[in-house]
Design a protein around this nucleic acid. Structure first.
Lengths: 141, 141
DNA sequence: AATATAATATCAGTATACTGATAAAACAAG
DNA sequence: CTTGTTTTATCAGTATACTGATATTATATT
């Protein structure tokens, strides 16, 4: 039975989670990739497009479009790096920080719902096990 | 830290797993969605396009293209349902069964590699926990 | 039986993430 | 200092999965 395999389960979970996030974040006018980018910028303000792309595990080209969308909505602003002629740093605006907080609430609610039948310990265990899977997959490439 | 959240971990695991599968299955000329479709057909021979789409969690339009690709390579054949004028049943050919076995080996190897640092019990536990996440996500939509 | 509803197959168009390509700036090495 | 490599930003094209639309066949209801 293919539907008992870990790979299948992971894919299905991710697919449903993404669907929920897309729908819920849309109510505040964010896409899931935009929310991810804003979240990274909250932790590390002023990243370049290339660095932001690496942190979100997408290509620079893809991140470029995501950031352009965020810039049009004035959730981020970009300014040339004073110490580097090519880099353009991306910074959260105050409305960007606001919308991000709404996003956090939405996503936390979904994660709470997703893990409602698991104990705190079980969630932590799952995170630990999947982290080991990530490490193994990363080293095998 | 966003990168300690279960949702983030699930996404990253799925992304890496998919990357590995795409690369490995490509060596035998299969795409990951094609492999998934063949796997379902192995369990339930002769499904219609619509039913196959539901089982693979994609739209009928998407499955139509996948099946067309498989048909061109003669891994499946399609025949009108004798009891139903509109349905067209999809069946594995012998070369389809062969390529699927290669696919199974490839995917099993990847899963083995992915879970190399987990015990059998830990894998089973992770499957159980994620299955509960799936159930919760499905009922919340 | 006639008509409404639903399911199926399939043609288009659209969105998103990818690879490819190019140009500019920075850095490293001879 | 100049030449080659790397990094960055960004324009295009491509692939894939989506939504929308349409026609055909089944099924359900009156």
């Amino acid at each position: 039975m293919v539907d008992k395999r870990l790979g299948y389960i992971i894919k299905r979970t991710q697919q449903l989670l993404r669907l929920q996030m897309d729908g819920a974040l849309d109510t505040v006018g964010l896409t899931t990739p935009q929310y991810a980018a804003l979240s990274i910028l909250e932790e590390d303000e002023g990243l370049s497009n290339a660095e932001l792309a690496r942190r979100c595990f997408v290509t620079p080209q893809t991140m470029h479009k995501i950031v352009k969308g965020l810039e049009e909505k004035s959730y981020v602003r970009r300014q040339s790096d004073p110490t580097h002629g090519r880099k353009i740093n991306t910074l959260l605006t105050s409305s960007g920080e606001e919308i991000l907080q709404s996003g956090h609430e939405i996503v936390e609610d979904i994660e709470t719902e997703m893990t409602q039948d698991l104990t705190k310990g079980e969630v932590a265990q799952t995170v630990k096990h999947l982290s080991k899977c990530i490490e193994s997959l990363e080293s095998s490439s």
